[in-house]
């Protein structure tokens, strides 16, 4: 995926200003930055949820808008943070929706197999016939990830997936994101607020500030005292734990 000169304005306020970057395939990329830096808007645009004002998003040789929506859904999956479904839906039914781009509402035996696998991968077997509004936040988040897995796309986009989760579930979720890349070979793009999760679990980081990319590169290049202090206007200390640069800020 290749993003060139992306621009987005709301009224007179330009929130994304000529953003260009290339998504490294088969890696985990995290978008970080302070509130209002434009990272979520960029995520919205590369996942076609938000219309862009200008720029090109080249996805597998073709601009995103040229793709047929249904075809694109077999290659790119997005999970946003607000998922309040207003209907009675069991975990299995939710996960089965992931097969919608392939078979519509009529599942084939292969589809059912994919659903089984996704449920097993997320260890949701015992909950599969429970209604999702009866699950805890962490379980529900896992059910949604299972749906994304059933969708079987090369690209998985997660918009602030750790929001509203406690450290146990948030850490679990980050491990899952890592496994999606390492075990299933997917390209994972995340929008994250927690810098340490980004630093520990991603391969590349794209740091935003005021609608522009402040720094893009491998984790070690972006997670430095100077860069982070410049972006967040807060004092940082960097420590090396388990070979990863982790930050302390106060």
């Amino acid at each position: 995926m290749n993003v060139v000169d992306l621009i987005k304005s709301y009224g007179s306020k330009t929130v994304v200003k000529e953003v260009s970057f290339t998504v490294p395939k088969g890696k985990v990329l995290s978008l970080i930055g302070p509130n209002g830096a434009g990272k979520s808007t960029v995520m919205g645009m590369i996942s076609r949820l938000i219309a862009r004002d200008a720029g090109v998003i080249d996805f597998e040789g073709q601009d995103l808008t040229k793709w047929k929506s249904k075809e694109l859904a077999k290659h790119l999956a997005i999970l946003t943070q607000h998922n309040n479904v207003q209907m009675k839906l069991t975990v299995r039914e939710l996960v089965a929706f992931g097969r919608f781009p392939y078979s519509g509402s009529r599942l084939t035996p292969e589809d059912n197999e994919m659903v089984d696998k996704a449920i097993a991968y997320m260890e949701l077997q015992e909950y599969q016939d429970q209604y999702i509004d009866e699950l805890s936040g962490g379980q529900r988040q896992r059910a949604y990830i299972a749906m994304v897995i059933a969708q079987d796309t090369e690209y998985v986009l997660l918009d602030e997936p750790t929001n509203n989760l406690d450290i146990y579930h948030a850490t679990n979720l980050m491990r899952i994101a890592r496994r999606l890349c390492d075990e299933l070979g997917k390209t994972v793009i995340l929008v994250l607020h927690e810098i340490n999760y980004a630093a520990f679990y991603s391969d590349y980081i794209c740091a935003f500030k005021n609608g522009r990319i402040a720094k893009f590169g491998p984790v070690e290049e972006v997670i430095t005292k100077e860069t982070l202090s410049e972006i967040y206007k807060v004092d940082f200390e960097i420590m090396n734990i388990g070979g990863k640069p982790l930050t302390i800020y106060y």
Binding site: L49, K68, H82
Partner: peptide, 14 residues
């Protein structure tokens, strides 16, 4: 059925 999942999910599912 898919529309009921909300705008974002519906678009995600094509």
């Amino acid at each position: 059925d898919v529309i009921t999942m909300g705008r974002n999910q519906a678009i995600n599912l094509g």
